[in-house]
Nucleic acid binder design. Structure first.
Length: 581
RNA sequence: GGCCCCGUAGCUCAGGGGAUAGAGCGGCCGCCUCCUAAGCGGCAGGUCGAUGGUUCGAAUCCAUCCGGGGUCACCA
């Protein structure tokens, strides 16, 4: 249930009736009519801008519309009062029964509370991580992995049909480097001195690869020329790397539905087919690009290349799909890959990329726009850097990988839940500071702790109530006399709970999972506030000695809050804690 | 120089075209005989980078400019 859309439907229904009865003109567009919580509590529980939005097209003063609408809305049992205010806002006060009903709904719906159908089952592909299979995942990948996974959870919760996909970049030169590096480790496993030359991957995570190669090939590849072993070792090593990456992702609680290989596109005609599709649209031509503007064109020389006319779909310059030697650029398989996604029938594509791929956004959008003839939107989320700190000091670590902090280092130090939550405490396009000390701190400036603490307190109440002999099952609590929840502080709590479904929809529409993390912080804050009100006003404590009926109602409110915390954390992929230690 | 992102309280950051712009930290003042004070309440602190524009209404949309970061033809 989403109370705000319910009330908006009521408003639109009344406006429609007003049009039918001639109170306002026929045929007005109600699309911009909004029902939202007002910023200021004094303005009531909900506000609608209907009168202001419609005043001009209806050629009527806003107050006249607002007053007529108010009179009609006031007849609905849910609405206690409708007051015209300010320039034409209509402020609605809702019956406590409405808010009490939200508590009951949360208890009834449980983990499904807040679930939405706005996605209408549309098929969306979320591509994320897509790290090269040349080593373990490092910090740079963590945020993208978490954002992608949480976004996928969010969209699924909001009614989209989600596919999580990893694009294995195994077609380029970097996997050759991997093969050569692994070969040296193989020589090492065979008792020879490895030559980890400049440009090879030095990390000791390749030692097991070398040992595995020795098991498979014995000494057969020693002193053989590269041409003999390169292809086999490349395949072998990248498979082992992918296995490691899958394990890394599992550590973070991330799972993929589909792994697609770049290499698998070569030799299948898929790249050629994608380019041919563009060629048939007149978007492929042989030409010479202008030198990059403003950059010293010293080493620039005109070259004839095969170009994609991406400017026809919003890009700034056309982009090469073939190098001057006739081989594909990296862009060509990427076009083919997105072509494949379009052909698989997705209604929406989302790519989660590192912020250093900013220059890549327009051309990829252009390609998808062309290949789908504008029918499949591509949203590209660029993920900004994570800066690591420990107690405020920049943090460097090189444990097992040689030069970088790995995903495993982060998860081992901070834990998957903390890592995931923290990665979602910023918008994707803002850099994020991650302090290993602060994220584990048990204080309110640590949002993970703060939210988890609220959940622990709720569990504490339930535990105490159970010890006192109360039935605190959700079914029993849903039957409690919730009309006893009438104090303003309790109604405020219920109102915050009612925000959850609305926040889910806003977050899903904008592909912004971080909104859920911020919402949970606010929800927790409301709960901690209510909890402490019990210190001053004993009637606000959840457990009321000798009054099981009242206790049940208040516990129902606490439990409903817990239900929402769990549902929200589930979207983030974080496990709620039962008890702080 | 082109393109992209950012610019909101001393600091770190929220804020779907709505009313008097919010939170945490830091500062000051309060709250535990009582479900976890690991918390809560209050006060102080703002020309929302600047200037124009669109709009009944702009932190939000558009344009230009100023700062900071990223990126920039045969690397993926």
């Amino acid at each position: 249930m989403n109370l705000f859309t319910d009330i908006r439907e009521l408003v639109v229904a009344e406006l429609t009736a007003m049009a039918a009865e001639g109170q306002i003109p026929q045929g007005l567009d109600f699309a911009n009519v909004a029902v939202e919580p007002p910023r200021d509590e004094a303005h009531g529980d909900m506000a609608t801008n209907a009168a202001m939005v419609l005043a001009k097209p209806a050629a009527m003063p806003p107050r006249a519309i607002a007053e007529a609408l108010a009179a009609r809305l006031a007849r609905d049992p849910r609405i206690l009062g409708a007051d015209v205010a300010g320039p034409g806002f209509l402020n609605l006060r809702l019956s406590n029964l409405v808010w009490q009903g939200v508590v009951a709904a949360a208890l009834r719906e449980g983990a499904n509370f807040g679930r939405s159908a706005i996605g209408r089952g549309a098929r969306v592909n979320v591509e994320f991580v897509s790290a090269n299979p040349t080593g373990p995942m490092h910090v740079g990948h963590v945020r993208g992995a978490v954002v992608g996974d949480a976004l996928a959870n969010l969209l699924a919760f909001a009614g989209w049909n989600v596919t999580r996909e990893y694009y294995i970049n195994d077609g380029g030169a970097q996997v050759d480097v991997l093969a050569r590096s692994a070969y040296e480790r193989y020589r090492e496993a065979c008792g020879l001195e490895p030559e980890i030359r400049e440009g090879l991957y030095p990390g000791d995570y390749l030692i097991p690869v070398g040992e595995a190669l020795k098991v498979k090939y014995g000494s057969a590849l020693i002193d053989q020329p590269e041409a003999v072993w390169l292809t086999d070792i490349r395949e072998f090593a990248s498979q082992m790397m992918m296995q490691m990456i899958r394990e890394d992702l599992a550590q973070l609680g991330v799972r993929m539905d589909v792994y697609s290989s770049e290499k698998a596109l070569y030799g299948t005609g898929k790249i050629e087919a994608a380019i041919q599709t563009l060629r048939d649209m007149g978007l492929i031509y042989e030409g010479v690009l202008e030198p990059p503007k403003g950059k010293a064109p010293e080493d620039w020389e005109p070259r004839v290349q095969t170009l994609f006319r991406s400017t026809a779909h919003g890009d700034d310059v056309d982009r090469p799909v073939k190098k001057s030697d006739g081989s594909w650029t990296y862009f060509a398989p990427d076009i083919a890959y997105h072509h494949d996604k379009v052909k698989r029938g997705f209604d929406l594509l989302i790519d989660i990329l590192g912020a250093d791929h900013g220059g890549y956004v327009k051309r990829m959008k252009a390609a998808v726009s062309a290949l789908s003839q504008g029918s499949v939107p591509l949203d590209i989320k660029l993920i900004q850097l994570v800066k690591l700190y420990k107690n405020g000091e920049p943090f460097k670590m090189s444990k097992r990988a040689g030069t970088f902090v790995t995903l495993r280092d982060v998860v081992e130090q901070a834990g998957a839940d903390v890592t995931r939550f923290m990665m979602l405490t910023r918008k994707n396009d803002v850099a994020l500071d991650f302090d290993f000390a602060k994220v584990l701190e048990q204080s309110k400036d640590n949002p993970v702790f703060y939210v988890q603490y609220a959940n622990a307190r709720i569990n504490s109440v339930l535990r105490k109530a159970r010890e006192a002999g109360l039935d605190v099952s959700d079914a029993a609590l849903a039957r409690a006399d919730l009309t006893q929840l009438s104090h303003a502080a309790e109604i405020d709590m219920a109102q915050q709970i009612a925000e959850f479904p609305r926040e889910v929809e806003i977050a899903a529409k904008g592909n912004e999972p971080h909104r859920i993390a911020f919402y949970l912080y606010e929800l927790a804050s409301e709960f901690h506030g209510l909890w402490n009100r019990g210190n001053e006003d004993a009637s606000l404590r959840f457990l009321q000695d000798g009054n099981p009926a009242t206790s049940s109602a208040k516990i129902a409110l606490a439990r409903a809050t817990g239900v929402v915390i769990s549902a929200g954390l589930a979207i983030l992929g974080v496990t709620p804690v039962e008890e702080m230690r």
